[in-house]
Computed example of a mutant assay.
Amino acid sequence: MKITLQLAAIYNLLWGAWVVLFPNHFFEITQMEPINYPVIWQGMGMVIGVYGLGYWWASYNPMRHWPIVVVGFLGKLFGPIGFIINYLQDNIPIEFAYTMITNDFIWWIPFSIIIYKVHKEYKWKLND
């Protein structure tokens, strides 16, 4: 759990810094039209980076700081749902899905395992 959360922390801090410092780079490498207001994309980078700090702190005691993991998991779940809704409404190009591979999908299983372990631990304590 500790290694997973620390890897997630490092990834989020790096991704957030990349988006804040180079807001048009993702759009350039995916050959997408840059957004009109890069500050919105930079705001997204800031939020993702802040999640990184939360994951790092949670890594010291994932059982105690499980709400950070759950909030992160929910973001990794709702982000793709929001993408699908917007893609189906023709509001966003398919190339934007690239962000979900490393921001969301690869973390679903490890975060689910952590949440399962927390649930199992607290369920055990409640049954005492």
Score class of each variant (00 low, 15 high):
residue 110 P to T: 02
residue 122 Y to E: 15
residue 106 I to Q: 00
residue 118 V to R: 04
residue 118 V to I: 07
residue 90 D to K: 15
residue 118 V to K: 01
residue 111 F to G: 04
residue 90 D to V: 15
residue 120 K to W: 07
residue 126 L to M: 15
residue 122 Y to F: 12
residue 121 E to S: 14
residue 84 I to E: 05
residue 90 D to Y: 04
residue 107 W to T: 03
residue 122 Y to V: 12
residue 102 T to M: 08
residue 122 Y to M: 13
residue 86 N to I: 02
residue 108 W to S: 06
residue 86 N to Y: 01
residue 92 I to D: 01
residue 112 S to F: 11
residue 114 I to P: 00
residue 121 E to I: 07
residue 123 K to F: 13
residue 116 Y to I: 11
residue 100 M to R: 07
residue 85 I to Y: 03
residue 108 W to M: 06
residue 117 K to C: 04
residue 87 Y to S: 06
residue 89 Q to D: 12
residue 92 I to P: 02
residue 91 N to A: 14
residue 106 I to M: 01
residue 123 K to R: 15
residue 99 T to M: 06
residue 101 I to Q: 00
residue 88 L to I: 09
residue 108 W to A: 07
residue 123 K to V: 11
residue 117 K to D: 08
residue 94 I to V: 13
residue 107 W to S: 01
residue 108 W to I: 05
residue 110 P to V: 00
residue 124 W to Q: 15
residue 98 Y to H: 05
residue 91 N to P: 04
residue 102 T to I: 07
residue 89 Q to W: 10
residue 91 N to Q: 10
residue 106 I to K: 00
residue 95 E to G: 10
residue 124 W to C: 14
residue 91 N to G: 12
residue 116 Y to S: 06
residue 123 K to L: 14
residue 119 H to M: 14
residue 85 I to S: 05
residue 84 I to F: 11
residue 88 L to N: 13
residue 97 A to E: 08
residue 97 A to C: 12
residue 105 F to H: 06
residue 118 V to G: 06
residue 101 I to K: 02
residue 115 I to G: 07
residue 86 N to H: 01
residue 99 T to L: 13
residue 97 A to R: 07
residue 115 I to T: 10
residue 109 I to G: 00
residue 101 I to L: 02
residue 121 E to Q: 10
residue 119 H to V: 13
residue 92 I to H: 03
residue 99 T to Q: 11
residue 124 W to I: 15
residue 103 N to Q: 09
residue 119 H to D: 10
residue 113 I to V: 09
residue 99 T to I: 13
residue 116 Y to H: 13
residue 84 I to G: 04
residue 95 E to M: 11
residue 93 P to S: 10
residue 90 D to N: 15
residue 84 I to C: 12
residue 115 I to Y: 08
residue 97 A to L: 14
residue 97 A to W: 09
residue 98 Y to C: 01
residue 86 N to G: 03
residue 107 W to E: 01
residue 122 Y to D: 15
residue 123 K to Y: 13
residue 119 H to C: 14
residue 103 N to W: 05
residue 111 F to Q: 11
residue 96 F to M: 11
residue 107 W to N: 03
residue 100 M to K: 08
residue 107 W to M: 05
residue 106 I to D: 00
residue 93 P to K: 05
residue 84 I to T: 13
residue 101 I to N: 03
residue 108 W to G: 06
residue 110 P to A: 00
residue 96 F to R: 13
